[in-house]
Amino acid sequence: MSVLQIVKGCPLFHDLYDAEIMTICESCSVKTLVPDDYIFKKGDEGDEIYLILSGSAIVSKGGIEIAKLRKGDLFGEMVLLKENVRHADIMSDNYTDVLVLKYNDIFGLYQTNPKIFSLLILNLSRLLATRLKGAGSYIEELKIKEFERNKKAA
């Protein structure tokens, strides 16, 4: 099934077997969006994680486009760390289908299937570490550019 192929590619589901991924996805829902539909806005409260099955979405803050999300990208995962308030606007810029995973469904796995739950949390940690590393590299580049600019100005 193509939906399974898309979900398997997501870093949150690494090392999980197909049957285990289907166990998680069975309780998920799918939201269909048209261009310019908002998935959520900055300041909204939510308890859902989203995975883009098809289409794309734009992450923006204060009208400035920060990133573009494509098929297989995961967002909203901060709810797993109990960060209920959204920090940016996510708007669909195409005909987009997103898989919606609820916080309660994922944490419910702690009781029903601790192995899947622990793998999900491990993958989440890896995902956040990768993003933190990326953010660190970007800050370093900006700092270097600022230093060179100041040097030239001086």
């Binding site: 939906v3 069975e26 998920c28 829902s29 799918v30 939201k31 099955l53 098809s54 098929k71 289908d97």
Partner: peptide, 24 residues
């Protein structure tokens, strides 16, 4: 509410569209 369960999504018109997009 534009939501549907994954089973309904795959079994509806969206399933065919998702299959073609899977061959992107």
């Amino acid at each position: 509410d534009d939501r549907m369960s994954l089973g309904d999504y795959v079994g509806s018109k969206h399933g065919l569209i998702a299959s073609i997009q899977g061959e992107g």
